[in-house]
Amino acid sequence: MLSTMTNLLETTILYSTPLILAALGGLFSERSGVINIGLEGLMTIGAFTSAVVAINTGSPWIGLLAGIVAGILLALIHAVATVTFNADQTVSGVAINFLAAGLAVYLVKALYDGAGQTPVVESKFTDLAIPVLKDIPLIGDPLFNTSPITYIALILVFVSYFVLYRTPFGMRLRAVGEHPHATETAGVSVVKMRYVAVLISGALAAIGGATLSTSIGSEFSATTVAGQGFIAIAALIFGKWKPFGVLGAAAFFGFSVALSLTGQVWGLTEYVPSEILTMLPYVLTILALAGFVGRANAPAAIGKLYERGSR
């Protein structure tokens, strides 16, 4: 029983880590008033770049850094299009997804002689045990003997909370997402804040992508990200655009997936077909939303064009 619980927790963490990171990315962007439906694409480019660089340098950390840079560059396109050129934010996000999916797979084919995936990332992130804490029964092994990126993800939840709610930068960022005109009048540059927010979002989503290709998995292919960016958007809304909300939503979804998977190992498939069992996380999410969570209010200025001087 104890080992079952540990296993459930391990699987939950495995599944939630990339979601937490990408959803936090979306959080920064959307709190500043810029919809980011391009999380999927930002994760894809992060996953691709970090895998290729990790393969060539032999270091997953350098790979991660490169992934972050790539995520920021792609996010820059989103920022230029939406903030500078006032493009519709959803349109631009959709384009980012197309661009990343095309570019990453195209480059894999160009780099690796037509292959559908990168070679194996030999030097990937390995579990890092934290002394003493790892010996706590039940939660010690899953929580304190895991991938460094999982620690990074958890720390980033706290950092995001602190930055957004306890620093002048965060307050301005949120203000820009709620009342851009008033904030501009108060002397904050809406354009600058939104640029920074969108770039942060690219960096965080890219770390989420890197998790998939260099920590949980060890290669990049067209199906590495496979819809997780959209689940991250769901987690962002489910978590009501708040850091700890996002953590809770991602953990809830991860736990539901874990339940549906370990359910098979317990032999539940004797009674329920595996296709039906696989629906579980999605059904549970809807039920949770309808039953307990309810209304979600997006940042007020989200998706609206902002032109200086107009209102």
């Binding site: 396109i77 299009a81 050129f85 493009a87 384009a95 197309f98 661009l99 095309g102 160009a110």
Partner: peptide
């Protein structure tokens, strides 16, 4: 590779949307 079409399409969307 077919993927180049995705790149082209994404670029067109961006150019049109931003009225670049």
């Amino acid at each position: 590779p077919f993927e180049v079409i995705r790149i082209v399409f994404a670029a067109i969307i961006l150019f049109v949307a931003a009225n670049f």
